[in-house]
Amino acid sequence: MTAVEIFTRPGCGYCTAAKSLLTRKKAAFTELSVSSDPTYRDQMYHRAGAGATFPQIFIGATHVGGCDELYALDRAGKLDAMLAGEKAAS
């Protein structure tokens, strides 16, 4: 499986929903919560852009975006391939 990182903040329903989908997919992920380490926010902005909201999700080197984008990939049938390390077709 490809490494998955998810930047989160406390009280974020979208963060919870994204983690729930990844858990249902049995995808191991690293949660980078800004409550446990405030420097994660700067790392997230650097990788995702200064206007980024929570969560921000990365699968391997690919910036997926947020919760809505993650669910859209799943609905399109592309998420499983990405999690397996395959290139998603556009």
Rank of each mutant, 00 (worst) to 15 (best):
A28S: 10
A28C: 03
G60H: 07
L21W: 10
R75E: 12
R41I: 06
T2P: 10
A81Y: 04
E31D: 06
I57W: 08
D42W: 03
T53Q: 02
T39Y: 04
G51T: 07
E5W: 00
E69R: 14
A89N: 12
R41F: 15
T16Y: 11
C67E: 07
G13D: 02
S20K: 11
A18R: 01
D80W: 01
A52Y: 08
A28M: 05
F54W: 12
A3N: 09
A89Y: 08
G51S: 11
D80T: 13
K19R: 08
F58H: 10
D68A: 14
E69S: 14
Y71T: 06
A88G: 12
T23F: 06
K87Y: 07
C12M: 02
P55N: 12
A17W: 02
V34E: 05
L21A: 09
D74V: 03
A27C: 08
K25F: 09
Q56S: 04
A72I: 00
V34F: 09
A17M: 09
G85Q: 07
S36E: 13
T2G: 05
G49F: 08
M44T: 11
L21F: 10
G11N: 00
T8W: 03
D68N: 11
T2S: 15
S90E: 12
E31V: 02
A61V: 06
A76F: 00
E86D: 13
T53Y: 03
A81I: 07
L22Q: 04
A28H: 09
E31K: 02
K78Q: 15
E31W: 02
T30D: 06
T30F: 00
L79D: 10
C67K: 02
A81S: 15
D80H: 00
E31T: 02
G13C: 05
T8V: 13
E86F: 06
S90Y: 09
T2I: 10
T23Y: 05
D74N: 11
G13E: 01
F54V: 06
K87P: 05
D42A: 15
A28I: 01
F54K: 02
S35N: 11
A18Y: 02
R47S: 13
R41T: 09
A81G: 14
M82D: 02
C15Q: 03
Q43A: 14
E31G: 02
K25I: 04
G49L: 05
A81D: 15
D68M: 08
M1G: 13
Q56D: 01
T16M: 13
G11K: 00
A88I: 05
A61T: 13
D74L: 04
T53R: 01
P10N: 13
K87Q: 13
S20W: 03
F58L: 11
A88L: 07
L21D: 03
A3E: 12
A84Q: 14
S20G: 11
Y40K: 09
Y71I: 08
A48K: 06
Y40E: 04
Y40N: 14
K19Y: 04
C12H: 00
K25G: 06
F54G: 01
G77A: 06
A3Q: 13
E86P: 00
K78A: 15
T39I: 07
T53S: 15
C15L: 02
K78H: 14
R47D: 10
A89D: 11
L32F: 03
R41N: 14
